[in-house]
Design a protein around this nucleic acid. Structure first.
Lengths: 188, 188
DNA sequence: TTAGAAATTTGACTTAGGTCAAATAATGAA
DNA sequence: TTCATTATTTGACCTAAGTCAAATTTCTAA
């Protein structure tokens, strides 16, 4: 599936000058401090955030508890998918876990650009497909793997997560309690 | 999210004659008997299956056990998403749970049609977005809900599933054992 | 209709993971 | 440095859900 990111990047490199400048004209950089919220619950996700540097996460609250649903590193694209797609209030927050720099693209401007530049429509499809496969893979893990197996998967495939993100957040991302994660780590 | 299906259907109704005939020219109907496999593991999912009638499911095998990942009813579109998107061998099977009639569209022909008819590209994006939101919602359920809560969710939002699909399959779809499902049902 | 197979339920017991509480360890600002 | 806060670990006990085995119930094909 990493190969699909390559495919997307390769595709972006083939974009013509006009398409590329159109895209740049509707994007702008912004910095956030550690702890800042890029998106709040109940807000409509009217922007996409491409992480240039730093770490961020997406999470929601269920009876007072924060459940992390996605972790973002450099070059990851952060949005609340359903809020962005349906332009309806978000169930999720997006939070900067460190100071971050992002490239922001507005939803509405991007919709208009897609109508004018079909290559952006194709790009949007690729991004949606990638996200679909990513979520499908995560669901697969919850459906069939134990907590220990899920932790080992992260440890092997995304060691940077374990190295940079607090265990409380990793535990909620794995869908287990902090104590259980600590015990799993104490073993292998 | 049902509203998004409405949006997709509304969009389809706005398709011009040429686009529509192009789509029809690359689609054909086919019937399968109960128990037939529309897609086998390790095959590349080179077709999409729009269910016209009957019930089908998608599942994979983990150490000999069948895990159902999706149930299809009339008007549902069945594909192994990553296999179809990446055109790589499928981890999943697609099986007819009853006699079914499907409208089959070939992947390759659809790719070519999308290049010629941009409205099909936009349609494809909507379908990918819908699937992404659907999977995200299922992941949410696995991430935060107990087995009982997941069962009640199905019971309320998709009662047709409980009425038509064997409990063994529903149990694996919920990620629980058959016995646990039976006990949940014995209560409320 | 009826025997055999398949689906579902029930019982007894085990286990992964949760909860609550307390003890350490690590970090960061004054 | 040092104190206070935050992060992580450890202990004791609990609970949801799994496993294995057997009993029923429901279908289905002859």
């Amino acid at each position: 599936m990493t190969s699909y990111i390559d495919k997307i990047n390769t595709y972006i490199k083939t974009l013509d000058h006009d398409t590329l400048t159109a895209l740049q004209s509707i994007s702008s950089d912004k910095k956030y401090k550690k702890g800042d919220l890029l998106l709040k619950q109940h807000e409509i996700c009217g922007k996409s955030y491409l992480l240039m540097s730093g770490i961020a996460r997406k999470y929601y609250l269920t009876d007072g508890k924060e459940i992390t649903t996605e972790l973002y590193f450099e070059n990851d694209l952060a949005v609340s998918f359903d809020s962005y797609t349906l332009q309806q209030p978000s169930r999720e927050f997006i939070e900067a876990l460190t100071d971050v720099t992002v490239s922001i693209t507005h939803y509405q401007a991007f919709q208009e650009a897609k109508a004018k530049y079909p290559k952006l429509l194709a790009l949007d499809l690729m991004l949606a497909e990638y996200y679909g496969m990513w979520v499908e893979n995560r669901l697969f893990q919850f459906h069939t793997m134990t907590a220990t197996e899920r932790y080992l998967e992260i440890l092997h495939k995304s060691p940077h997560i374990v190295q940079t993100v607090p265990l409380t957040i990793i535990a909620s991302y794995l869908g287990i309690s902090l104590e259980t994660l600590s015990r799993i780590r104490a073993k292998v």
